Simulated assay, not measured.
Amino acid sequence: MSKIPATQARPLSPHLTIYKPPITMTTSILHRITGGALYFGTLLVAWWLIAAATTESHFNFVNWIFGSWIGRLVLFGYTWALMLHMLGGIRHLIWDTGAGLEKHTASKIAWATVVGSVVLTLAIWIVGYMVRGA
């Protein structure tokens, strides 16, 4: 067995700076991250519901926080996480049937998941503003 000189040694795996992750891997990672983020967002929803069930001053305080620019940004992110996670779940449900497992089809479904989550999030927020008249 001959030894390869250090100048000619090849890396054991591609480095992150040269490796382009496929969209299916990216959406899988995002699905896991959004699942974790939804735990935090659900605590916010529970806080709002508890505030609604307690005093008016506590409810007004929570509404003030959620109505601030940072609160709306968090709620917008929560909406997007919810939509991406939901569509990712539907994607996995489709795969569980054995459909869409071909590489090109799986990539198209993954892109549809990302685009669909953005479109649904924007639609929810636009409709919300139209209904509120804000």
Rank of each mutant, 00 (worst) to 15 (best):
L44S: 13
K3S: 06
S13P: 04
Y39V: 08
V114G: 00
A53W: 06
I18M: 12
V131R: 00
G77Q: 01
H15S: 02
W48P: 07
S57Q: 07
G128P: 11
T55L: 01
I33Y: 12
A106S: 15
Q8R: 01
V127L: 04
V74I: 15
I23C: 00
S2Q: 09
F66H: 05
G100Y: 06
T27Y: 02
I33S: 11
G41F: 11
G88W: 02
N63S: 11
F59W: 10
N60K: 03
I126K: 08
T113I: 09
K108Y: 07
G88A: 05
A37N: 15
A81R: 14
I90V: 14
L120I: 14
M130F: 13
G41I: 10
L101T: 05
A112L: 07
I18G: 12
S107G: 10
G116L: 02
T26R: 06
N63P: 09
L120D: 08
K103I: 03
V127P: 02
L93D: 00
I90R: 05
F59R: 08
G35V: 01
P14V: 02
D96F: 08
I23F: 00
G88M: 08
A99M: 05
I33K: 15
G67W: 05
A51W: 08
N63L: 09
T121Y: 01
L122Y: 12
T42H: 08
P14E: 03
G100N: 08
G71E: 10
V114S: 00
L84D: 02
H31K: 14
A9S: 09
A9V: 01
S68W: 04
T113R: 08
L16N: 14
G71V: 06
L16I: 10
T17P: 14
S57N: 05
L43S: 12
I50L: 04
M83N: 13
T27K: 02
T42G: 15
G67C: 12
I70M: 09
G100A: 00
V118N: 00
I18L: 12
I50A: 01
P11S: 09
Y39K: 04
H31R: 15
R91A: 03
A37Y: 14
S57L: 02
W125Y: 15
K3W: 07
I70G: 14
I33F: 13
L12V: 06
A52G: 13
L120T: 11
S2C: 05
T105D: 02
S57Y: 03
I18H: 10
F40D: 03
M1E: 10
G36S: 09
A37L: 11
D96H: 12
I70R: 12
F59T: 09
L44R: 07
V118I: 14
